[in-house]
């Protein structure tokens, strides 16, 4: 298990942070480069792959604080907004796994160019874990992979989103008129379903129909950090199976449990963060490189 370092949230950047735009395909993407505190030679650059839609927003502050902790530990970091997300250009309706991977690879190239690093450590958050795992074998040499509550199966992930939508209707005293399967049928028929003020688009769902995280990582055996963010007393079966499969291939795997259930679809006040998760991720980085 990961040693828990005591790192207070970084209210101030430990070294310069530079927001900028860079191209991916024919669109500008927004990014922030976190310069590292001097002292760690040849450190890989950490590239964050955020989650999807509203989850990019709900996890945002935790990612910022993690990037600052990594920079304080001597690692350059690049966080970017994929197309159709945040301040980048492009339509969310056009986001597919292939296009998200294209953006991740463009971000990795930009990260190497800005930082001078030769290796990348990928950090994938939720759906971003699928993006990072897919980009990893296609991009620059990878020195590690960190996963925050990774999506193992997109189909199950979308099903959970739709179930959450129906649950919230019940919580408001309304009787849902559709089942999850009805909503999936509507997604197929209409091309989009409104989930808490964000559309789930058929193009995206179709692009990951047969994808699983385990299959995307079939050839990976590098250092891996897997943080489960759920109210469970043990690792979820899918997370445990992934960790075991990686370890069986010789990967050094560290896991941690963050016993919290952030409202992935609701922006909390204040925004959700986890000092323990940030500290453990920074500690794992120090151990990797």
């Amino acid at each position: 298990m990961t040693t828990q370092a005591s790192v207070a949230p970084l209210d101030r950047a430990p070294a310069p942070e530079t927001p900028f735009f860079f191209p991916s395909g024919d669109r500008p993407l927004y990014a922030v480069h976190h310069a590292p505190v001097a002292g760690r030679a040849n450190a890989p650059v950490v590239v964050h792959c955020h989650s999807l839609g509203v989850e990019q927003v709900t996890c945002y502050r935790a990612e910022v604080l993690c990037a600052r902790a990594a920079a304080a530990a001597g690692f350059p970091v690049l966080r970017y907004h994929a197309r159709g997300h945040g301040d980048s250009a492009g339509d969310f309706a056009d986001a597919t796994l292939a296009r998200l991977i294209e953006d991740a690879l463009a971000a990795a190239r930009e990260a190497l160019r800005r930082s001078g690093a030769t290796h990348v450590i990928w950090l994938g958050v939720r759906f971003g874990a699928l993006v990072a795992a897919s980009a990893l074998p296609l991009g620059p040499p990878a020195a590690g992979l960190a996963l925050w509550e990774p999506v193992q199966s997109p189909r199950d992930y979308f099903r959970a989103q739709l179930r959450g939508l129906l649950y919230s209707q019940v919580a408001e005293g309304r009787k849902p008129t559709e089942t999850v399967d009805d909503l999936f049928a509507r997604l197929d028929r209409d091309g989009a379903v409104d989930v808490h003020g964000y559309y789930l688009h058929r193009a995206l769902a179709d692009s990951v129909r047969d994808v699983t995280l385990a299959r995307r990582l079939e050839t990976w055996n590098g250092p891996t950090f897997l943080a489960q963010i759920e109210q469970r007393r043990s690792l979820a079966p899918a997370h445990a199976a992934l960790a075991e499969a990686l370890a069986a291939r010789g990967a050094k795997v560290e896991t941690m449990r963050v016993p919290e259930e952030p409202g992935w679809h609701m922006v909390a006040n204040p925004a959700w963060t986890s000092p323990e998760l940030v500290a453990a991720t920074a500690e794992w980085l120090r151990a990797v490189a």
Partner: peptide, 28 residues
Amino acid sequence: PWRESAADLDRARAERPIVVPSAFGGLV
């Protein structure tokens, strides 16, 4: 859903980040 028009994309290309110094640090 919003579909990005040519005019929207033109303005996206013109955008620039600004860091505003404040008592609490930079506001992005």
